[in-house]
């Protein structure tokens, strides 16, 4: 028993859905890493080790 191969239209639709899905995942990851970099001022490793990464408020 054999199944008929998918029409080409499904292949194109799948490529589009996969592409859009991967772009969305990449966009979310970029947003995450950009946020981490901005919040930690470019030193995410220091932040992970508990070092202060936000400037302390200036004493009045």
């Amino acid at each position: 028993m054999s199944f008929k191969p998918d029409h080409e239209i499904y292949r194109r639709r799948f490529s589009r859905n996969l592409g859009v899905g991967l772009c969305l995942v990449a966009f979310v990851m970029l947003g995450f890493f950009l946020t981490v970099e901005k919040v930690t001022r470019g030193n995410p490793l220091d932040a992970l080790q508990g070092k202060p990464y936000v400037a302390a408020p200036v004493a009045p």
């Binding site: 239209i9 194109r12 639709r13 490529s15 589009r16 996969l18 592409g19 859009v20």
Partner: peptide, 12 residues
């Protein structure tokens, strides 16, 4: 007629 079904490459 085959309906237009663009692939991802077409958008690129």
């Amino acid at each position: 007629a085959t309906p237009a079904e663009p692939g991802f490459g077409d958008f690129v």
